[in-house]
């Protein structure tokens, strides 16, 4: 079930990153909002990983190179603008993906039908904040522009077909390229012009090639579990 791993790892890793905001959010209301999104994603991750095996073994006992998430979701939180840009890019992708899966008959249809409602809200949240940061103050505009520029090169990977995920990838790509630039424009932001992938092939995350911050992230995530082999929690 490499497809369940890919989608499950996306959700798990992004949930973990959002969880790092706890106690650090810019305003209390946003503590609650970010935690809601993180909890939705963690719920999705647990269902998906359970399709592929034991959720905890998969989350805690795999080496970095065995994770199949896209590199976008593992990128550090950065400032609030970076987190929102990451949410904008990823939620647009996940929504298009789940919409197609939900209307199909594959193994993920049931999960996707439920998750698509959650993800629609994540996208709504990201879009509202993109508008407010992009079209807020000069400082917020600059920060948001830097964030959408900086993360742009991780977006190409989103459109690389995942084995076992039977959807129209071309439609997903064109849907994404319609919705995201439209939001950026409304937010008075400039559409990034750089390449959508780095010097290494897009799709690397799906092959287990990750970025440096990811190793530290899972070292922290797995440390306690690995320190007590065989223990129950």
């Amino acid at each position: 079930m490499s497809a369940a791993l890919a989608l499950g790892d996306d959700a798990l890793v992004l949930s973990h990153r959002l969880g790092e905001w706890a106690g650090h959010a810019p305003v209390l209301e946003e503590e609650v909002a970010l935690a809601n999104i993180a909890l939705d994603l963690l719920g999705q991750a647990r269902i998906l990983l359970s399709l592929a095996g034991d959720e905890d073994e998969l989350a805690y006992l795999r080496e970095e190179r065995a994770f199949r998430n896209v590199q976008l979701v593992e990128q550090p939180n950065g400032d609030f603008a970076h987190t929102i840009a990451r949410q904008l890019y990823f939620s647009a992708y996940q929504r298009l993906l789940y919409e197609q899966l939900a209307s199909g008959e594959g193994a993920f249809a049931g999960l996707a039908a439920k998750a698509v409602k959650e993800v629609a809200y994540h996208q709504d949240h990201a879009e509202h904040w993109t508008l407010r940061l992009g079209d807020g103050t000069d400082e917020s505009h600059d920060r948001m522009q830097r964030a959408v520029d900086g993360l742009w090169r991780f977006t190409g990977e989103l459109f690389e077909p995942v084995e076992g995920v039977d959807i129209d990838w071309q439609a997903l790509r064109s849907g994404w390229l319609e919705s995201v630039p439209a939001v950026l424009e409304r937010a008075t932001l400039t559409l990034p012009t750089g390449p959508q992938s780095g010097a290494w092939t897009a799709g690397a995350g799906r092959q287990g090639i990750h970025t440096e911050p990811f190793g530290r992230m899972i070292a922290e995530m797995q440390h306690l579990h690995r320190s007590h082999p065989g223990a129950s929690w």
Binding site: G19, L42, A45, D56, E220, H223
Partner: peptide, 17 residues
Amino acid sequence: SRAPSLRRKAILMAKVQ
């Protein structure tokens, strides 16, 4: 970030929220 199972991770996040 270090919760030792995904179940505990979800519970703890919900509690802090």
